[in-house]
């Protein structure tokens, strides 16, 4: 068994996530071994209560960066230190079962898409992460019901499989699934893309509540109005510089 690098929580920092000098390229073996370098030394630190916006044209690597932070993509070099319980752990060195534990407790991810499980009702799909953490089924469902209500997901849908849901309905289910857990770190990949104005407002509120509770958020938002409101800082891709919101974006 290979060892995992962890460190006792250093007093010198209070960041929850620290990506240090990430490099990631894709090698396409079927296309003559073409090599696409996407991340070339990206770094980011996020503190509790902060929301960092990833910006940049499509293809500039912001999604690749975010997926790397969830260990969905495996980086070629660099470290991703995450505060997991009392320890700081480097995600890039973790064993699969350790990553599973980190995704269960520490890092939540709202993707644009919902991988649909046939025949399982929406309420159960959304309550699953809480139940995996050991919460009683009834309490987990109550928690999810209140989020469904806030997100205006019609009650008649709760007992149905999300297979037939619209894009916006699936997205709200995804949001409820990830926001129900008290993750210290949340990654948001276009969480409002398919939502109408009223529900977008709800998501903004939910994000503000997470920030108030000390959650560190990293988000990709298509909608400038949304990120201008929730973001504290912007990490720009393509140009690879980091700016404080309000300085370069007036």
């Amino acid at each position: 068994m290979t060892s995992t690098a962890i460190s006792p929580s250093p007093v010198s920092t209070n960041s929850l996530l620290w990506a240090d000098n990430l490099h990631k390229r894709f090698i396409l073996h079927a296309q003559g071994g073409i090599c696409l370098p996407v991340l070339k030394g990206t770094s980011l630190k996020v503190k509790p209560g902060e929301c960092v916006i990833l910006q940049g044209p499509s293809g500039s690597g912001k999604s690749t960066f975010m997926r790397s932070l969830y260990a969905n993509y495996r980086v070629d070099s660099g470290a991703i230190w995450v505060k997991h319980g009392e320890n700081r752990i480097d995600l890039t060195q973790c064993q699969p079962h350790e990553l599973m534990a980190i995704r269960q407790k520490t890092i939540g991810y709202v993707s644009q898409f919902l991988r649909v499980i046939p025949r399982v009702p929406a309420l159960e799909v959304a309550a699953e992460p809480l139940m995996e953490l050991g919460l009683e089924a009834a309490a987990a469902r109550d928690n999810v019901r209140s989020l469904f209500r806030r997100l205006n997901l019609p009650e008649r849908l709760w007992s149905l499989s999300p297979t037939t849901f619209s894009g916006g309905e699936k997205q709200r289910l995804n949001i409820a699934r990830a926001f129900s857990v008290d993750f210290p770190i949340l990654l948001l990949d276009e969480p409002t893309a398919a939502l109408d104005a009223a529900n977008r407002e709800v998501v903004i509120e939910l994000i503000e509540e997470k920030k108030a509770r000390g959650c560190a958020l990293i988000g990709i938002f298509h909608d400038e109005q949304v990120w201008q409101r929730v973001g504290n800082r912007v990490l720009t891709f393509g140009r690879e510089d980091e700016t404080a919101l309000g300085e370069s974006h007036e």
């Binding site: 068994m1 995992t4 962890i6 460190s7 250093p10 960041s15 620290w18 752990i89």
Partner: peptide
């Protein structure tokens, strides 16, 4: 860096 001073230890599974 944040973790320079940190020892690298083997995680007890």
């Amino acid at each position: 860096t944040d973790c320079d001073e940190a020892r690298l230890i083997t995680m007890q599974d």
